Amino acid sequence: MVFPDDHGKQRTSTNVLRNFRSLLREAGVKSPEKWTVRMLRTSCVSLLSAHGIPIEVIALVVGHSGTHTTERVYRKQLQPVIRDGAQAMDEIFGSGRGAALSGGPEG
């Protein structure tokens, strides 16, 4: 059980959300009624991705057994990782392409 109440019983999803938003209010977060518990997980993935944490590590942090689910569910939050990978591929293949093509035996 992830969120037991004061008596050790399972909280309903409504009570979890109510308690979560109450904590946000106490912390001074603006518009706590717009937040969901799920948004914390998404924010975590976004922050880790933006700081260059590898997808394999992000998958472990959010409890996935591999990267496939992480990539599928959080593809929008993983854009920095995808962008950085694309830039690396451009650097590897893009800038050297002309030299590689002109440097052949007939070049």
Rank of each mutant, 00 (worst) to 15 (best):
E106V: 13
P32L: 06
P105I: 09
T14F: 14
P4I: 04
E71G: 03
M89D: 10
H68K: 12
M89P: 02
K30I: 12
G63I: 02
K34M: 12
Q10K: 14
V81M: 05
F93H: 12
H68D: 15
S102C: 11
S95Q: 11
A27R: 00
H68W: 10
R97M: 13
I92C: 10
L47N: 12
N19G: 07
Q10V: 15
L48T: 00
F3Q: 05
L17P: 04
I55S: 05
A99I: 09
D90L: 14
T69N: 15
Q10N: 12
Q79L: 15
Q79K: 11
R75W: 11
P54L: 07
V81E: 03
L78Q: 00
M1K: 10
F93L: 15
V57P: 01
G85F: 00
A59T: 05
I58P: 02
G104I: 14
V73W: 01
E106T: 15
R18C: 06
A99T: 07
S65C: 09
G85D: 03
H64R: 08
N15R: 12
G28S: 03
L78I: 02
R11Y: 06
G52R: 01
L47E: 13
E26V: 14
R18V: 05
G52E: 01
R11A: 06
I92S: 09
D6A: 12
G8E: 00
K76T: 15
A86D: 12
V57G: 02
H68Q: 15
V2G: 13
D84I: 05
G94R: 01
G104N: 15
R97I: 08
P80D: 03
K76A: 08
K34C: 07
V2A: 15
I92E: 07
G52M: 00
V73N: 05
E106L: 08
D90C: 10
I58V: 05
